[in-house]
Amino acid sequence: MAFTIKDVEHVAQLARLELNEAEKQVFAEQLNSILEYVERLNELPINGIEPLAHILPVYNVFRADEIQPGPPREEILANAPLVEDGQYKVPKIM
């Protein structure tokens, strides 16, 4: 497939990345050349092959559901860009 500026805008919106016009142009070109490169995977017959998402045969690792102390709220909030009344503050959502 060919990656258009419109495709770039759509993906950027999904990825929550604001891009300027120059970036859109560059990314369209670069993503096209990368997609062209990965097209070679189509040479392989892959019907019926089980996808391998994860290398270890480990599933559903559980632990006892016990309350454990977490780090203090002030320590966690110390890295936040904006805090009010002991909570994260963000611009309006609705």
């Binding site: 929550r16 860009p81 611009p91 959502i93």
Partner: peptide, 25 residues
């Protein structure tokens, strides 16, 4: 990395989606 809990944050945006997108940009 959305500018809420840690990391760089854009303070100009007036809504939360723009804040995410610009902080990441």
């Amino acid at each position: 990395y959305d500018g809420v809990r840690y990391g760089l944050r854009d303070f100009e945006a007036d809504n939360v989606i723009d804040m995410f997108s610009r902080s990441r940009a």
